[in-house]
Design a protein around this nucleic acid. Structure first.
Lengths: 136, 136
DNA sequence: CAGCATCCCGAGGGATACTG
DNA sequence: CAGTATCCCTCGGGATGCTG
């Protein structure tokens, strides 16, 4: 039996486009793409626990470049996940703190990260099995 | 008060590297990076509802290229999230079906997607406010 | 129908050096 | 300390054409 296109699946709450899906205008991916960056989750994870200053974050995530740290923090701030507070000391210090919106995001997000950590062995095993089958 | 580096935050279950974090060897991001692709979530979303054939997925996600559809499906299969079953009809038909592992991933993942859909207005608002403040 | 092969481009992100 | 500015390069992903 051929089940054509059926009705378009959607659980986004909002449809992505009018005729099916349009990833370009999809509100879900508009949000997801930002937190899918290489460093976003790491920083969210850190700031979910407590506020940190720039240099502290740098030390916490050793292999991030200043460029990416700055940029990622700015993006997260722009999307309203974290707040940036400058203390006019000398030399100046800047503290980053997660907002309520950020925490509300991190709640479901942390579940996925948890899943990833827990199931990593299963995924690795699946990959290996798959790769073995390919070298026929 | 200066709260140095404190102990390294971690909720990954597994530490990422031994001295703090190492994104390169982080098991969490090893998993996350794959589902963070442009199309992975869309396809997982579709296949979480029911099995689909190649062409059906193509129609469901109109703006994906065959190249990316094939590649993303293979990656998802490789990581054990979906199964691929070939029916030797003529012309051949191939069905993709979500595995138990895939469903267990999609459970927490769907919460994040839901969040993204729900809070999208808040994020948009935050962006606009941020951008206004910048053009001083 | 369900792919694979090839060409190509832009964005994400690394390295390095400089500043208030 | 907390950034900004440049250069550079990988690679995710789009477009097109061919096959079993």
């Amino acid at each position: 039996m051929d089940l054509h296109a059926a009705e378009k699946p959607h659980l986004n709450g909002k449809e992505c486009g009018t005729s099916g899906w349009d990833a370009g205008n999809c509100p879900v991916r508009d949000v997801i793409d930002r937190i899918a960056g290489k460093w976003s989750t790491l920083l969210l994870e850190a700031l979910a626990r407590q506020p940190y200053r720039f240099g502290e974050l740098r030390r916490l995530v050793p292999d991030i470049s200043q460029r990416m740290l700055t940029q990622t923090l700015r993006d997260l701030q722009r999307d309203g996940y974290i707040d940036r507070q400058v203390f006019p000391t000398k030399p100046p210090s800047v503290e980053y703190r997660m907002t309520a919106l950020g925490h509300s995001l991190f709640e479901p997000l942390s579940k996925v990260l948890q899943w990833a950590g827990d199931k990593h062995p299963a995924v690795k095993a699946a990959r290996q099995k798959f790769d073995e089958g390919e070298l026929s």
